[in-house]
């Protein structure tokens, strides 16, 4: 905790052992995923539990990319996740800004409603949503997924954005308004550029969440053309029930975008929570 405290060699060793444990626990499953993906088919079972395969191949990746619908799933997921992230961030930024800067009648009610949405089982609304989406003829469309995901993610994203806005002094947009901006201009020209890390973190967070959502996608999508990644990969499980290598290769490919995003944003997440959420 404190830089001043003299640590005993035992404590230091313990600390590094603990770190090594966490790192191994976090990374080993991912390593295993990658390992099987690059193991040639004929070695998968004979060397099934070997730490390092005796030879490597990228054949699995090639097959997945060329011979399966992988690219279509990937594209669908990308559309859904990017769409969700972009729309959610805009909507949440506006709402978070209102929470941060205005006192208005009904504010507490809206905040309470948003908190409630974080409390109840989302599965509770899976049936009504299915019926509503079916009624408006949006089953098997990516649009319905984007709308549903956006609504699910807006409350958390709003609280996140609010904490970022709270970190920016109110004086700045007031100075802007005195300098001749409307409030909206001040928001656009002064506050938004300063919130970019926050916007980035929110975007990445929502992207990751949307990228991994499974159950609603499973319910609302059943045509192969509009399947997102998680749904598609689950169909892989039945289709290629024996072809571990290809499944793992597809898994590795699915992992790349969300991990990239996450590594980029995780620093801002801690920062954002430190400045905002903790002080409440």
């Amino acid at each position: 905790m404190s830089a001043l405290r003299k640590s005993s060699p035992l404590a230091v060793t313990g600390k590094y052992l603990a770190l090594a444990f966490y790192l191994t626990f976090a990374l080993f499953p991912l390593y295993w995923l990658a390992k099987i993906a690059v193991t040639p088919d004929k070695l998968i079972f004979s060397e099934g539990t070997a730490m390092v395969p005796s030879s490597f191949t990228f054949e699995n990746f090639r097959t997945v990319l060329i011979a399966t619908d992988f690219l279509s799933y990937f594209k669908n997921s990308l559309i859904v996740s990017l769409g969700t992230a972009a729309i959610t961030t805009c909507v949440a930024a506006a709402a978070g800004y209102a929470f941060s800067r205005f006192d208005f009648r009904g504010k507490r009610l809206v905040i309470a409603l948003m908190l409630i949405t974080q409390m109840f089982p989302l599965l509770m609304i899976i049936a009504p949503i299915y019926k509503i989406v079916a009624a408006v003829g949006l089953l098997n469309s990516l649009t319905s997924l984007i709308i549903v995901y956006t609504a699910f993610n807006v409350p958390f994203a709003t609280f996140l954005m609010q904490s970022f806005f709270d970190g920016i002094p109110k004086d700045l947009e007031e100075a802007g308004m005195i300098d001749g901006c409307t409030r909206f201009e001040a928001l656009r020209k002064i506050i938004l550029p300063l919130t970019l890390p926050g916007l980035g973190a929110t975007l990445g967070f929502i992207f990751t969440a949307a990228w991994s959502e499974l159950l609603f996608a499973l319910m609302l999508i059943n045509s192969n053309d509009t399947m997102t990644f998680p749904v598609g990969l689950l169909t892989f499980v039945s289709k290629f029930s024996v072809d571990w290598g290809q499944m793992m290769a597809a898994g590795v490919l699915a992992l790349v975008p969300s991990c990239l995003f996450f590594i980029f944003i995780q620093r801002y997440l801690v920062q954002g929570l430190t400045s905002g959420a903790v002080k409440g």
Binding site: L23, L27, S212, S258, F261, I263
Partner: peptide
């Protein structure tokens, strides 16, 4: 960044 990584892994994966 590495120890936080599991959180970014899609649940189904």
């Amino acid at each position: 960044a590495l120890v936080f990584l599991p959180w970014a892994v899609p649940t189904f994966l």
